[in-house]
Simulated scan of single mutants.
Amino acid sequence: MITLGLIINPLSGIGGAVGLKGSDGTDIVEQALALGAQKKSLARSRQALQVIADLSSRFQILTCPAEMGEELAAEFGFSYRLIDADIAQTHTSADDTRKAAQAMLDAGVDLLVFAGGDGTARDICAVIGDAVPVIGIPAGVKIHSGVYGITPLATGNVIRSLLCGELVDVKEAEVRDLDEDAFRNNQVRARHYGDMRVPQHGHFVQAVKQGGVEDESLVLVDIAAYLCEEMEDDVLYLIGSGKTTQAIMDELGLENTLLGVDAVCNRELVGRDLSASQLLQLSSQYQQTIAVVSVMGGQGHIFGRGNQQLSPALLHQLGKQNIRVISTKTKIAALNGRPLIMDSGDPQLDQAWSGTIEIITGYRDHIVHTLA
Rank of each mutant, 00 (worst) to 15 (best):
L6G: 02
I14M: 02
A17E: 15
G22H: 08
S23F: 00
D27E: 14
V29S: 00
Q31I: 12
L33R: 11
G36C: 04
A37C: 08
Q38F: 01
L42C: 00
L42W: 12
A43G: 01
R44K: 12
Q47V: 15
Q47W: 10
Q50D: 14
Q50A: 15
A53I: 04
L55M: 05
L55W: 08
S56A: 13
S57T: 15
S57A: 15
R58I: 02
F59I: 09
M68E: 05
G69M: 06
E75D: 14
F76T: 01
G77S: 07
Y80F: 14
Y80D: 04
D86L: 04
D86K: 14
I87D: 04
A88R: 09
Q89I: 14
H91A: 08
S93A: 09
D95E: 13
D95I: 13
K99D: 09
A101T: 09
Q102W: 03
A103Q: 12
M104Q: 11
L105I: 10
L105Q: 13
G108A: 09
D110P: 11
V113H: 06
A115L: 07
A115E: 08
G119S: 10
T120I: 01
A121T: 11
D123Y: 08
A126G: 08
D130H: 06
D130R: 11
V134H: 01
P138L: 13
P138E: 13
S145A: 04
L153S: 09
A154H: 10
C164I: 11
C164M: 15
G165K: 02
E166I: 08
D169E: 15
V170M: 02
V170W: 05
K171H: 09
D179V: 06
F183S: 03
V188I: 15
A190E: 13
A190W: 12
H192E: 06
Y193P: 02
Y193G: 00
M196L: 11
R197C: 07
V198D: 01
H201V: 07
V205C: 01
A207E: 14
K209A: 10
G212W: 10
V213Y: 12
E214Q: 11
D215Y: 06
S217G: 11
S217L: 12
A224Q: 01
A224W: 07
Y226C: 05
L227T: 11
E230R: 15
D233A: 14
V235D: 01
Y237R: 00
I239D: 02
S241T: 09
K243E: 07
K243W: 03
T244G: 00
T245K: 05
Q246S: 08
A247L: 00
D250C: 04
L252V: 07
L252H: 07
G253W: 12
L254P: 03
E255P: 00
L259Y: 14
V264S: 02
L274V: 08
L282Q: 14
S284K: 12
S284C: 05
Q287G: 08
Q287L: 07
T289G: 01
T289I: 10
V292G: 02
V293G: 03
G300N: 10
I302K: 01
F303K: 07
G306F: 09
Q309A: 05
Q309S: 08
P312K: 06
L318M: 05
G319L: 11
K320E: 00
K320R: 13
I323H: 04
I326N: 02
T330L: 04
L335S: 06
R338Y: 03
S344R: 02
D346W: 09
P347E: 15
P347L: 14
Q348D: 15
Q351K: 14
A352K: 08
T361F: 05
G362I: 11
Y363I: 06
T370H: 06
